[in-house]
Design a binder for these strands. Structure first.
Lengths: 340, 340
DNA sequence: ATGAAAGCGCTAACAC
DNA sequence: GTGTTAGCGCTTTCAT
């Protein structure tokens, strides 16, 4: 038998609970928010009524009445990627346990979409907003300026920012990899990257790499994929790169997936890694321990970003934060394995 | 200078827009919902006022007044995993473009947590609910029964379900892999798995595998990891497995990450894959094309699940769906590569 | 096509 | 400690 869908059939209200418990609605409300301020006897009756009726408070009504939502908006470029999804998972755990509901938006690396999402989320009257990176449209900035919600820009560091900042320097990531390769005596380098248009942070890592290498007289060939990493394209690109520049002795990649594609091509061509070519990635993804050889990479503070973003947001919800505590560089760690 | 945080400072309301545009609030409301039902002259004035004041409608107030939210709740075991995150991404794209806001909850493979999240999300008065799988606590079921929201249970198939079902049979996944291995003449098999407690669907795949192999007189050794796949533990387990059962000629894994761990151990021990050991995974993760040899695996319909879940939900929001259309088996595809 | 009025379900003063 | 009252910002009849 098909379940009857009582569309619009009202759910149990606080008033009905109140009636059943023989108290006023405001007592029920009080009981729900500060249980120990109602007498034990009534508290018990109210709880019984709630259980009996299966009452669930209406969050929207509560939010409207108190003109204070428990909503926090979070915008990430994609959730299909352990970088942001781990940050998100940590963020959501910390924020939910503090009583907040996350509103997650997927910008798909598109700032016009970010603009739309910002408006959409702002219409929920969030008490906080988390954005990824510093790149926002003019309109986004003006909408945000009209608004006094605490904002954290995460996953990046090195620019002033709108309010709070929790991240790390992608430029430093590139530098770290470069320094490590230089230390191993490599001079002729290449950087194979996902598309810069799509991911501005990959470009920052490239700049850090290139600047450091060139400062010591080395050279860097840049190769950009057309989109996100794709094993075949990466292979082809690497093959062409080595054909044009057989002198290359180290390849840094914008992330581990790209590095895997390159490594795979090296295996096909029987180019020894790291003997003939040193190879490094970014992200310290799970599989990097399992490749042959294990991949040298950069560990970004995925979960720490989530944790500290939550902390800063919560703190700034409690009281205005001193300027000095509003910006946090979490740093990164070079994971030295055997591919360099 | 620190930005003054006007806490509680009211945002621009519809009333203020109305005043500026010299119309009544209800006209503004009408303009926002059905623009072509207000005269062009006023429409223009209203839009001007909106732009001028930077007005953003208050979703909560709207939802309360119309007693109809635009919220859809989604509960997944984890977003840190391309299985669910790709489904989620697709689901969110389709649902958002239809005007809905997703409320995402992370159950962390814990049904007590799911119960909490269900209550928490129900308090937003969602017009739809998406759950992962069929496993819910008694209390969850009773809360859900008190509720007439359309529900989709996704990522699984083969049980009655609460309302709508969009997924595939994990038992069939195991069977497919088994049949393929049997076809290649393998008889002594093993199944290496993430923990069944954590992921019930891995157990279903195991059962499908075992039942099929044993039906033809083959044998299956089961090895369960203590938690989620971890390269080291997988390596150790595989080593011990082969020591105890050197006769094993095929290993099926509960997912690709586990398979990678096993493959890695095979490389270390110089056991030829697939010569000595055939190997298969589940998930068709990105890296599976890049391993040596490329990994035979199962492609689950991640994005299709999201797409069809959205479609069913939207349809059932428009009108009661016939029973026949409420259950969808999307099937899976064996991706034959070189590891079997 | 437009506006007045009555809520939506709850919270927050305030009085008792 | 408890109830009364007045909104929160919007939508929705229902007149006009």
């Amino acid at each position: 038998m098909a379940k009857r869908r009582r569309r619009g059939s009202q759910r149990v209200t606080m008033g009905e609970v109140a009636r059943l418990a023989n108290v006023s609605p405001s007592t029920v409300s009080l009981y729900l928010r500060r249980p120990d301020e109602v007498s034990p006897g009534r508290a018990e009756k109210i709880q019984a009524a709630i259980d009996r009726l299966g009452y669930l408070p209406n969050t929207m009504a509560g939010g409207l009445a108190s003109s204070r939502s428990n909503v926090i908006g979070v915008l990430v470029p994609t959730i299909t990627n352990s970088f942001f999804s781990e940050t998100l998972e940590t963020l959501e755990r910390h924020l939910r346990s503090a009583g907040y509901q996350l509103l997650i938006g997927n910008t798909e690396f598109d700032d016009a979409r970010e603009e739309e999402l910002i408006r959409s989320i702002l219409s929920w009257n969030p008490v906080g907003l988390v954005l990824t990176g510093f790149l926002h449209t003019r309109k986004s900035l003006s909408v945000l300026a009209n608004n006094d919600t605490p904002i954290v820009e995460m996953w990046d560091y090195g620019q002033p920012g709108l309010d709070m900042v929790v991240g790390f320097s992608h430029h430093a990531c590139g530098r770290l990899v470069a320094e490590h390769m230089l230390r191993q005596g490599r001079r002729r380098m290449a950087f194979v990257s996902t598309n810069f248009q799509r991911d501005v942070r990959a470009r920052d890592r490239y700049h850090g790499f290139r600047d450091t290498v060139e400062a010591t007289g080395g050279t860097v060939e840049l190769r950009e994929l057309s989109g996100r990493s794709h094993a075949e394209e990466t292979g082809r690109l690497t093959h062409a790169l080595m054909q044009d520049h057989p002198e290359i002795e180290a390849i840094a990649c914008s992330n581990d997936m790209v590095a895997l594609g390159v490594l795979c091509e090296c295996q096909r061509q029987a180019w020894d890694v790291p003997g003939r070519i040193a190879l490094a990635g970014f992200g310290n993804l799970d599989f990097t321990t399992s490749t042959v050889p294990p991949l040298t990479t950069i560990e970004p503070p995925r979960r720490e970003i989530g944790q500290h973003t939550a902390r800063l947001l919560l703190a700034s919800l409690a009281s205005e934060l001193p300027e000095a505590e509003k910006r946090l560089d979490l740093g990164v760690r070079l994971v030295e394995r055997e591919s360099v």
